[in-house]
Write a protein that binds this DNA or RNA. Structure first.
Lengths: 206, 206
DNA sequence: AGCAAATCAATACACCTGTACGGTAATGTA
DNA sequence: TACATTACCGTACAGGTGTATTGATTTGCT
């Protein structure tokens, strides 16, 4: 193990403190947008001094990158948990994951507002884009896996290409989420559209 | 007609000048993102002085709002032209419009980068959100209309609800566009997924 | 105890931001 | 020609920005 992973001794609280600051940052991004937050705002939100923030992050960009990784990890954790949690059909798992992309409650709404902010920033920040893309790729693979499982279980016909189907589902949910986020359509309608699409995918030809 | 629409006399060039400045703004948003552009940058880009920009826009927010309306209008114009242009099947028209949401060339890419920037900003700027939402609603209505036409022409079965089908197509194209924009998937694959979806919609049951 | 690293705090700096203001020249109207 | 409006330009200002720096204090290992 490297020195960064120790749980006792010097620097033990380091990562925890970074997460705490990142959470303050993410909350402010949700409230005021990514570009409206200053390091001083973050410091105030985390109830630490500006110097403390600077101690834990060498630059603002580094802080942003860490925060993106942090919230991405939260998402993948949720997905992982949803996968390992048995007793659910592939379709239910699939729906649960895709529903995370639609702002149906305050948590999802906040997360998706933050994600949208990072997406926009990624268009002019290659490093950020790399990390964001990695998250997308990971989620895509999970969707492919689930569709394959459903095909193996006979819940989805062997016809459709899992890659294509995953890309379609992913994009559909993402688009629906964006639309709901800006007030174009309700979460209920969005989920209905999503379910309709799942119905078609899971309609095993007689 | 009000005084704002005169084409001769005092203030005739007013709107034209505002558009010119807005175009400089939009170009910079594409290049550096919405929040990275300052009024001085815009002035330099439009090859006018800062005072000139201030003369035509009372504040930065007003300029942003105008620019959003301006680029939205360009989009609706393109849609209108595509609708009035005869000789195309409803499906072809539909595909043409939806393909505008996928960054398949430099123009589309620039427009969608700008749109993404405005979307993110809209999350913390209600006024901007109102205008953005209006554009979304307008495009949605066009899609509904086209699907209805296709149903009337027998190209699409009477089964699916046009509202739902439009919402799905819209969200799918939007999501695909976003994914391509950040480098998650190619425009070719995105269009293939879109066509697949159109195939299903236009598959009249035998 | 001694020492070094980590953890902050406070301050300063150079720069950029949107906006306000005062002035001048051009333009069209009566 | 007189006048009013428009169209700028240049500058100033108050405030915020990320970052660098310096120093004090705490922490934990040996």
């Amino acid at each position: 193990m490297g020195k960064d992973s120790r749980t006792r001794g010097l620097g033990a609280r380091h990562e925890e403190r970074r997460r705490q600051i990142a959470e303050a940052l993410l909350a402010m991004i949700d409230l005021h947008g990514l570009d409206a937050v200053s390091l001083r705002d973050v410091a105030a939100g985390a109830e630490v001094s500006l110097g403390a923030v600077q101690h834990y992050f060498r630059s603002k960009d580094e802080m942003l990158l860490f925060a993106l990784d942090y919230i991405s990890e939260q998402g993948t954790d949720r997905v992982r948990r949803s996968l390992s949690l048995g007793g659910q059909s592939p379709r239910a798992v699939l729906r649960g994951i895709l529903a995370e992309l639609v702002p149906g409650d305050d948590r999802r709404r906040a997360e998706l507002r933050i994600a949208t902010a990072f997406t926009a920033r990624s268009l002019v920040n290659p490093k950020l884009a790399d990390h964001l893309r990695a998250g997308y790729a990971a989620l895509h693979e999970v969707l492919v896996l689930l569709i394959r499982q459903a095909q193996d279980a006979g819940e989805v016909s062997a016809g459709p290409d899992p890659e294509r189907a995953a890309a379609a589902l992913f994009a559909l949910a993402e688009g629906l989420g964006t639309h709901v986020l800006i007030g174009h359509g309700s979460p209920e309608t969005a989920l209905a559209v999503l379910d309709e699409h799942l119905d078609r995918l899971f309609a095993t030809a007689p």
